[in-house]
Write a protein that binds this DNA or RNA. Structure first.
Length: 117
DNA sequence: CACGTTACGGTTGAA
DNA sequence: CGTTCAACCGTAACG
């Protein structure tokens, strides 16, 4: 599914998209720039296409250091995403949010429900 | 110079 | 309906 991992963009919510205060693009207001000159959002996963590019380049035989420079992402992130990709075989991030499952609290299993949308 | 891991700040989302 | 809390996010820094 790696090749088909790209299909879940956080499209603007109908209610939010309708709530356009003014300006052309109220969204993406947290656009930050890292030392590499790349735009990312603090506390939010990278765009789907960026992740796909990282895996694609890595599969091509390009060094992680080159990928990080070419895509403008921190090498730490590249390493993390590549590691996860090899583990799970998927490009998508883990399950963010979601409170602690009561069942796990009892002290049996610690596997969090990886419910991907 | 290249790579892995940790530290930090921030957001998300169910309970 | 609003708050809480743990987990993951990615960058920045360390080794």
């Amino acid at each position: 599914m790696a090749a088909l991992a790209g299909a879940v963009p956080r499209m603007m919510r109908p209610s939010l998209a309708q709530s356009y205060p003014r300006s052309g693009f109220p969204l993406e207001g947290q656009g930050r720039v890292n030392q590499l000159g790349g735009v990312f959002i603090n506390g939010r996963p990278l765009p789907n296409h960026i992740r796909h590019k990282i895996v694609e380049m890595a599969h091509h035989g390009i060094r992680p250091c080159v990928i990080s420079r070419q895509l403008r992402v921190s090498h730490g992130c590249v390493s993390k995403i590549l590691c996860r990709y090899q583990e799970t075989g998927s490009i998508r991030p883990g399950a963010i949010g979601g409170s602690k499952p009561k069942v796990s609290r009892t002290g049996q299993l610690d596997s969090r429900g990886q419910c991907r949308k």
